[in-house]
Amino acid sequence: MSHPHTPSCSLEPGVDAALGALLPVAPVASAAAALRAGYPDPARVAAVPAGPLFDAVSVGMDLGLEALDLLLRSGAPLGPVAADGRAQVRRVGFLLAPDTLARLRGFAWWCRAHGLRTASHGDVVALPPLVGDGLTRLLWLVPPPEGAAGAATDPALLLGALRRALSRCGGGGAAGLSSVSALKYSFG
């Protein structure tokens, strides 16, 4: 069994070689602004080093859409969320504040123990274009905000949503999924 914490992880591991060079991290006012400023071309997928700007948790599409629906219904602030709808990938990635996984080792352990992928320092994540026609299979469900610092997803709320989504998806299958899960059908 391979270790779920991959050294080069995106919504799919191993795509960084096809995505080009890593983005430079320029000093700017916020992580969201730095993320936006680091895209060499905002209309293309970018390979971004996790750690300095964010940590990430990547989950299967159905589980991720269900957890996203639960977070949206809670009304809590939500950080960027990306989806990779390619048939061989089908994942949703939640971007968290930098060093979340190091500070909350129990959270990171729980994620990996349940087969979720994590990314932090030393990992590379493929992120969707910031602008475009929306026909790409890698897209933002919750884009990084422009300008101001923006919201960060609370890891405790994400953990709660993931636990609830796991119980719903595991027990009820697709019939128990919410309306946001209908997005999965737009990915083919």
Rank of each mutant, 00 (worst) to 15 (best):
Cys111Glu: 15
Arg90Lys: 10
Leu101Phe: 06
Ala102Asp: 15
Cys111Asp: 15
Arg105Gly: 11
Gly79Ala: 04
Gly75Met: 09
Gly93Val: 11
Pro77Phe: 09
Leu96Ser: 09
Val81Pro: 05
Gly79Leu: 02
Gln88Val: 11
Gly79Trp: 01
Leu78Thr: 00
Asp84Arg: 02
Ala102Leu: 13
Gly85Phe: 04
Thr100Lys: 05
Val81Gly: 04
Leu104Thr: 13
Thr100Trp: 00
Ala87Thr: 14
Gly85Trp: 07
Asp84Leu: 07
Ala76Gly: 10
Val92Trp: 00
Leu101Asp: 03
Arg90Gly: 05
Arg86Lys: 04
Asp99Met: 07
Ala97Thr: 10
Leu96Thr: 06
Gly106Phe: 11
Leu104Pro: 00
Leu96Pro: 09
Arg90Ser: 03
Ala97Trp: 01
Gly106Asp: 15
Thr100Arg: 02
Gly85Glu: 05
Val92Phe: 01
Gly79Pro: 01
Gly85Ile: 04
Ala108Lys: 02
Arg90His: 03
Ala76Trp: 01
Ala97Ser: 15
Arg103Pro: 02
Ala83Arg: 12
Ala102Ile: 11
Leu78Phe: 03
Ala108Gln: 04
Gln88Trp: 06
Pro98Lys: 08
Arg86Asp: 02
Leu78Cys: 03
Gly106Met: 13
Arg90Leu: 05
Asp84Pro: 03
Leu101Pro: 00
Gly106Glu: 15
Pro77Leu: 09
Trp109Thr: 13
Ala83Tyr: 08
Trp109Cys: 07
Arg91Ser: 09
Pro98Glu: 07
Arg105Ser: 11
Gly106Cys: 12
Ala102Lys: 11
Arg90Val: 06
Ala97Met: 10
Pro77His: 12
Asp84Ala: 13
Ala83Lys: 02
Asp99Gly: 11
